[in-house]
Amino acid sequence: MKIQVNARNRAYHFQAHDKEQMLFAGLRSGVDLPYECSTGTCGSCKARLIDGKIYDPWPEAPGHKYCKNELNEFLMCQCVARADCTVEVGNFVYTMDPGACLPRSFFGVIRATRMLTPDVMHLEIELDNPQNFDAGQFVVMEAPGVTGFRGYSMVNFERDAKKLEFVVKKKPGGGLSQWLFDSGSIAGRPVDLCGPLGHATFFPNVKKNILCIAGGSGIAGIISILARASQEQYFNEYRGYVFFGVRTAKDSFFLDELEGFVRQFPERLQVTVVFSEEDAPASLKQAHPDLLFGTGFVHDVAAQAMDGKYQNIRAYLAGPTPVVDTALRTLIVKGKLTTDNIRYDKFS
């Protein structure tokens, strides 16, 4: 199918395969169409059908509340062209930067799973072909027999990655999450993936101090950012402040990994683990002498610790929407950070 996208500044043309969502067809072709979650929730990829025919496999998607039916508006991340289409987006759209990792569809096989807490799983997926991505990006995943893609951030960071690692939180009634947790042994099962996606990326040439605020499984992308930064010896020159919030000590994970990063760069990198429902147990503090601990909401603890340290900061936010939203308000209103120095992807 031929797709024409009329943007504010010009028109773009690309091909979409059968069953391929219009957003992914455009991104694959190097057209940087607007999106955030890419899984039907945020409404950022809203477009208007001018001509042609589309199929919407998920008319109940929450992102539909941003679409006006009388204007033929639809979500590009969900809809598939059933004929040649002309659509319109109300944004300036440019081609992707040369060197950007263009998203594509690919296959993977689940190789290993490990429980990090009673309701958080570490997932390793082996890929059919090596895949490149930038630190902080995510892919969308679909399992056979489970309808709908879900977005998960990569935990690892390497070039030509042959496996991707993820953190998955158990969500009752969440299609894919439930399948991963409840299907018994899932090692060896194939999954469909599409990516890499997302704008919350870290590059060493940003040359700023890094502030990361993550809630729960949102720490995944932050670990990837810390991995990239460590590989580049970034914290020999710039500071890193990481705040990782969970409810209780029992819900915490990756503390060894986080402490490992701090031990490599003890002078400039600090990681604070924040529990919203209890003080950190003494035994946990003893086991992790190089981590800091705090009590309260992660954005409050971060705001207190960061007071007076917001100069030359690039912030990364990740986690459940309420965590990201409150952290955003804190950084903008209290920290006076400009929005081009705040990166986040909302897809949980």
């Binding site: 955030e36 409404g43 950022s44 109300g90 955003l328 308000r329 903008i332 400009t338």
Partner: peptide
Amino acid sequence: PHQDVELEEGMYDGCVLTCHMHLWQ
């Protein structure tokens, strides 16, 4: 002007107005 979000729901510190949806300021 981006996506029909009410600006009243955004952030305002007396100097800068920020839309909460995509952080236009």
